[in-house]
């Protein structure tokens, strides 16, 4: 992709890495468990966005399957953690 210049790639990866660092900070510091659950959901989406930018930088369209699967799995993790925190069991 000739329109997506290397300077633009560096900018995108820097911004996404900054967001990821902020989320890891909140995950370590977060005063409650639910803050960490929010961070898990957000980190999954940031990883998906990094995969999309990497895909555009390399030029291969083969990462969309992984994007689809990760979007599903992140939601499942959030729901399972919330049900566990609410009732103490996941499958009722």
């Amino acid at each position: 992709m000739e329109l997506f210049t290397p300077a633009m790639q560096v900018f995108f990866f820097a911004a996404l890495t900054l967001s990821l660092g902020v989320m890891i900070y909140r995950m370590i510091k977060g005063p409650h468990v639910l803050d960490r659950v929010i961070c898990i959901d957000a980190i999954a989406l940031i990883v998906i966005c990094m995969m999309a930018v990497w895909e555009l930088a390399v030029g291969t369209p083969y990462f969309f399957d992984a994007i689809l699967v990760l979007a599903l799995v992140g939601f499942l993790a959030t729901v399972a953690l919330c049900k566990y925190l609410e009732r103490g069991e996941i499958i009722d």
């Binding site: 995108f12 900054l18 967001s19 902020v22 957000a42």
Partner: peptide, 14 residues
């Protein structure tokens, strides 16, 4: 546009 929204959300989370 999407990157702006992501960075703004991370700033809000911080």
């Amino acid at each position: 546009f999407g990157l702006f929204f992501i960075v703004t959300a991370a700033l809000g989370l911080y």
